[in-house]
């Protein structure tokens, strides 16, 4: 009976999708955090929404701003600045929440997390040849948060490794520590 349910020959479609993915692979959304430019690969970005109505969750580290309602789904919002160990972002007129989808491994379900940025700039194509390795120090950000330095108009843009920055395991471990600190 198994041969009755055959998979559709989707190789053609698959190839097309693959090509598109390759194009998108070298595209990055750039945004500003305290006047500094960062980039995130657009493949992991779901959408960008205006900042608003964040509900704070008690007893969370300061980089967890709270949760928002994304069309019925409750999504945590991370303050990237705070996550990098800098002072928290000040919400301004152009503040946005970038909704990012991360999948740590094939078996794990996707997590949707929002990050606050001061303003969103543009989508840039940065070919792999234009990407340098992360510096060992000097970026004032944990080196493992950086997946590379993109060269754009003779300037460097920090391309973030979202899987590390937003690692759910690490974040929730941190939240737990906060909890313990509070109660001890």
């Amino acid at each position: 009976m198994t041969n009755l349910v055959k998979a559709e020959p989707a190789s053609v479609k698959h190839a097309l999708v693959k090509q598109k993915v390759r194009e998108e692979e070298s595209q990055y959304l750039t945004f500003l955090l305290d006047k500094e430019m960062f980039a995130i690969g657009i493949l992991s970005i779901k959408e960008i929404i205006e900042y608003g109505q964040v509900t704070t969750v008690p007893m969370m580290p300061n980089f967890v701003r709270g949760v928002i309602n994304l069309r019925g789904q409750v999504v945590p919002v991370i303050d990237l600045q705070a996550r990098f160990g800098r002072p928290s972002s000040v919400v301004g007129k152009r503040s946005c929440v970038v909704i990012i989808e991360i999948q740590l491994s094939a078996e794990q379900e996707q997590h949707v997390i929002g990050v606050i940025v001061d303003s969103v700039s543009e989508v840039l194509a940065i070919p792999p040849a234009q990407i340098e390795r992360a510096p060992q120090f000097g970026a004032k950000i944990r080196p493992d948060f950086i997946s590379g330095m993109g060269k754009v108009d003779d300037k460097f843009v920090i391309i973030l490794n979202v899987d590390k920055v937003l690692s759910v395991d690490e974040l929730s471990a941190l939240t737990e520590r906060v909890d313990e600190e509070r109660h001890d």
Binding site: V57, M60, V64, V74, P76, T175
Partner: peptide, 8 residues
């Protein structure tokens, strides 16, 4: 609330 807040 998702895994991030699991332990709150």
């Amino acid at each position: 609330l998702g895994p991030l807040f699991e332990r709150v």
